[in-house]
């Protein structure tokens, strides 16, 4: 606790710097969702994005990346009463449905206590796992994983 209060002024200063820097950068690059269209013109309708059909599991780009969903999930519901994802991905069911089983890390509470069932903080799968569409990446990326820890 004490440590934290000591760090406060420093953090505030850093935050201020970041804000100033960020703002000058934004001032140049900012663009509204309308694109460069004038406000009184109608924008072109963007192409409809479609979810990919069922496929093989997708490669992971970095260590500990939440794996992407390689299939359609239309109509699948995750409610407090039932989790459609787990009806195939739970340890009990994954073999029968040839699915990837849910990670063991998902059975821990936030205090690190190991639970008998999936932890509430990992229950809502779509917070981290997402299906893919035919959209192209918005930003270029040159990231490459370290050789020794990339399995693909």
């Amino acid at each position: 606790m004490k440590n934290q209060t000591a760090k406060k002024p420093l953090l505030a200063a850093l935050g201020l710097c970041a804000l100033l820097l960020g703002q000058s950068a934004l001032a140049v690059e900012i663009q509204s969702l309308r694109g460069e269209n004038a406000i009184d013109e109608t924008t072109e309708v963007p192409e409809v994005k479609r979810y990919n059909k069922d496929g093989q599991p997708l490669p992971r780009n970095y260590v500990l990346q939440p794996p992407l969903i390689p299939h359609k999930i239309d109509g699948y519901e995750v409610t407090i009463k039932h989790n459609k994802c787990l009806s195939c991905h739970s340890w009990k069911n994954y073999r029968r449905h040839h699915a990837t089983k849910i990670s063991q890390t998902h059975f821990q509470s936030r205090d690190g206590v190991v639970l008998a069932n999936v932890s509430a903080r990992r229950y809502f799968c779509l917070q981290c796992h997402v299906p893919q569409t035919n959209a192209l990446p918005l930003v270029d990326n040159t990231f490459e994983p370290v050789e020794s820890v990339s399995s693909w």
Binding site: E77, T79, I80, K81, H82, N83, K84, L86, S87, S90, W91, K92, N93, L115, A116, N117, V118, S119, A120, Y123
Partner: peptide
Amino acid sequence: HQLPDMSEEDPSAVLAVKP
């Protein structure tokens, strides 16, 4: 339709600790 709590059928597909 939405499904009821089916923990009796499959306890592995429900939220274990309910709020």
